[in-house]
Amino acid sequence: MITILALCSGLSAVKFALEDDLGVALAMVGAAAVLDMLDGRIARLLDATSKMGGELDSLADAISFGVAPALVLYVTLLDANSAGWIIALIYAVSIVLRLARFNTLTAETNRPGYTQEYFVGVPAPAGALIALLPIALYEEFGNGWWTSFAAVAAWTVFSAALIVSRIPTLAMKTVAVPPQAAAGLLVLVALAAALLVTYPLILLMVLDALYLLHIPFAVRSQRWVAARPQHWESKPSERRAERRATRSEGARRSVARLGLRRPGSR
């Protein structure tokens, strides 16, 4: 039921875009993304997972985050011409390819445990919200270079490239917050809630920027784990402790080496 609601929400974005209500169109895609995060968790919580549910989830994602955003961009900022249609097709196809690869990787049973902590490429909901960033800029700031056909086309292709890439990105369901950071996280959640009520488009821009900025960290983290098979089955918190210990040891060695170099020594 939640997956069907996500599908209806994402596809309704096209209706509101055709009616030139772009703010609501963005909200519909955002609601579909939230429902997509909830459906699997609730199904596992209620012990209601099924093969049909998994297939339905992929089909709904293809429409909500592939077809719907492509059509929204096409009828608004891609000028509804032939060149814009090609760009929209590139984006929609990238979402479908990404979902097909995700299903294939999920079916593999011999993958190391740490790979479940990373997505291969940008996931479909995040990719859709990144691709729709020019519409958020248009709604918030009006026309500008960010609404030109060239800029929107380039950004859409860039989003499609991130989606089909093999760049590792963090799976949010596996991110653990250290106890000492809980208070700061609650403050950020309160701030996000305030922005959602008062400046939702600004919040979308901030979230897009933060997501893009996290990618270098995810790449570095994944490479660190992949190069150390002894940590493949360790918990993320254990690996973070190991990395902190390694950095501290490296810092102590650097200080020790500097201490041996006295003024005037050769």
Rank of each mutant, 00 (worst) to 15 (best):
A27T: 04
D57C: 02
A182L: 14
A136R: 07
M172F: 12
D79W: 02
T76D: 06
L22S: 01
S237K: 13
I215A: 03
R220H: 09
V120C: 06
A107E: 15
Y138G: 00
V157W: 10
L132M: 12
A209H: 03
R261L: 13
S58W: 08
L260I: 00
A62Q: 06
K235W: 05
R101F: 08
A153D: 07
S248K: 14
A25N: 07
L38R: 03
A83S: 14
T49Q: 15
P178F: 03
L207N: 00
L38V: 10
S248W: 07
L97M: 15
G250A: 13
K51P: 01
R257G: 01
L73T: 01
D208T: 14
G184M: 10
A183H: 11
A124P: 04
R253V: 02
L7V: 07
L18D: 04
E55I: 05
A6E: 06
N110G: 04
R166T: 13
V72C: 11
V93K: 01
A150I: 12
S94M: 05
F158P: 01
S148N: 08
T49D: 13
V152R: 07
I202S: 05
S148C: 05
R111W: 07
L196G: 02
R98D: 05
R257K: 15
G84F: 13
L186W: 15
T3Y: 09
E238K: 11
P168C: 08
C8N: 10
R41K: 14
I202W: 12
T104K: 06
R228A: 07
R262I: 06
A60V: 07
R223Y: 04
I130Y: 12
L207M: 14
D57E: 08
Q230F: 03
N110M: 07
L186D: 02
E19F: 01
A251N: 12
A92E: 10
L105M: 13
F217G: 03
S64D: 11
L18K: 03
A92M: 14
V152Y: 11
A124E: 11
R166D: 11
A227K: 15
Y211Q: 03
P179M: 00
S58C: 05
A150L: 13
S265T: 10
A245E: 15
T169P: 06
N143M: 08
A126H: 04
R257P: 00
R243P: 00
E238S: 09
T246R: 15
V75L: 01
I2C: 02
D79M: 04
F102Q: 10
S265Q: 11
A192P: 02
A192L: 07
M37D: 02
E108P: 01
E108D: 13
P229F: 06
F65E: 09
V177G: 06
V67M: 12
A48H: 13
L191G: 10
S9C: 14
E117D: 12
R41H: 07
I202Y: 09
R41T: 03
I135N: 00
T169R: 11
A256M: 09
F149M: 05
L185W: 08
L35C: 04
F217L: 13
A60H: 07
S64A: 15
I4N: 03
V206R: 04
E139M: 04
D36V: 09
V225W: 12
L133H: 02
Y211K: 01
M37R: 06
T104S: 11
